[in-house]
Design a protein around this nucleic acid. Sequence first.
DNA 1: CGGCATCCTCTAGGATACTG
DNA 2: CAGTATCCTAGAGGATGCCG
Lengths: 135, 135
Amino acid sequence: MEDQAALARDDHGQIIFDVLAQACPSRETMEHITSRWGILALIALSEGTYRFNALRRRVSGVSEKMLAQTLQALERDGMVHREAQVTIPPKVEYSLTPLGREAARHLYGLIEWLEGEMPSVMDARAAHDRSRAGA
Amino acid sequence: MEDQAALARDDHGQIIFDVLAQACPSRETMEHITSRWGILALIALSEGTYRFNALRRRVSGVSEKMLAQTLQALERDGMVHREAQVTIPPKVEYSLTPLGREAARHLYGLIEWLEGEMPSVMDARAAHDRSRAGA
DNA sequence: CGGCATCCTCTAGGATACTG
DNA sequence: CAGTATCCTAGAGGATGCCG
């Protein structure tokens, strides 16, 4: 297994080792963008600018609290831009920063691939469940 | 906002809409592979075959329970191949299926990009915290 | 409208002990 | 070694109410 670790470093560089170590600072950001609502917020915002409640309607199933929380984390990480007009009623617009657009692009590729492979996934599940039932 | 949704569909096709809807069957698989331990297990296994405890040591911080649970979900989704020898002591080897290798490749791209952008993220955080403190 | 704050629930996830 | 089963806690996440 030492060989495998060494091989991995040769193939891919240092990155793999970093991520698998727990003190890695990127784990936190990674979890922000790959969290349940983080992914969906980024994908939704890749469509364009949204106001808070419009975004909430777009990302179906998200609660007010979780959306606010998610957006704050993404804003702090520099993925989301928040533009607030202090009027009555208030108007707050959310959009992606260049960094956020890159993140969304990566996530988009993953989703697109997965959607295409879902038939394979469903087949694998059926086969798996069948062999379990048969045993 | 209707225009934005329509625009998104034109640009990217049906996929965005599917994912943002909650009944979407791919959300579940998506969460398996982008979950905290799902990502790390896939990345680790992209290095090669691992036995259970070796994998657990490789993915630092994962508990026995969560690793077993994660691997079962990924196996059922057809991402991970499990090869068990019924000997004493038992020997179980885990590796990626072609599907799993593709998933790992996408995740790897995301991680690699994020690692490279971490300085920007840290800067954004510092700026954000500073403006909050100043206000 | 866009939020905090509060309360409550439920599950992800860790620790421990046991089994084949 | 590779799990399963049990117990328990911490945090995710929803519902509600209030404020600028």
